[in-house]
């Protein structure tokens, strides 16, 4: 089992997403994350799917994705240099004593404060998944009230 980041360009209309998701679920594969949004062309959506599974079977899934009428282009970013980012929002419990330490951490990780109250801070952060994982590990002891992640978006590195 290995983690794969699959990038898909698809027709921007209803039904496309369920077709794509169906190819994974029919094999019993759980999609770890899925991020979907519009591209520079409004008739085309882009999806980034992160899924773990057997490499041979995922190769098959990619072929089957290609076969879907709604799918314009598929790429498995396995073993390829990519730029990937995730967005996270988290609401962290703060006290008078902990607030300064938390602010330092947010600053170190280039996070932003999206909202704050006397007892909590909502942090907005984008970065690679592992950076965000690290941040979460460090702030967890202070108390995480709520945390959501957007799922990864990915793009091949710029080439000459």
């Amino acid at each position: 089992m290995s983690l794969h980041t699959i990038s898909l360009f698809v027709e921007n209309h209803s039904g496309a997403l369920s077709r794509i998701a169906g190819l994974f679920s029919s094999r019993g594969y759980n999609i770890s994350s899925i991020a979907c949004g519009i591209t520079e062309n409004p008739t085309i959506s882009h999806l980034t799917i992160v899924v773990s599974g057997d490499a041979n079977i995922l190769e098959q899934v990619v072929k089957q994705l290609n076969r879907l009428i709604d799918v314009i282009k598929v790429k498995d970013f396995h073993n390829e240099p990519v730029i990937d980012r995730e967005l996270m929002l988290t609401n962290i419990h703060t006290t008078k004593g902990s607030r300064q330490e938390i602010l330092t951490l947010i600053n170190t990780f280039n996070g932003k404060i999206a909202s704050a109250s006397s007892s909590s801070i909502i942090v907005e952060m984008s970065g690679t998944s592992s950076t965000i994982d690290n941040f979460i590990t460090l702030v967890r002891p202070y108390g995480i009230k709520e945390l959501i992640r957007s799922g990864k978006i990915a793009m091949a590195e710029a080439k000459n």
């Binding site: 098959q60 072929k63 290609n66 076969r67």
Partner: peptide, 8 residues
């Protein structure tokens, strides 16, 4: 004719 049938 179906690339997805190859090595399935």
């Amino acid at each position: 004719i179906d690339p997805a049938a190859i090595s399935k």
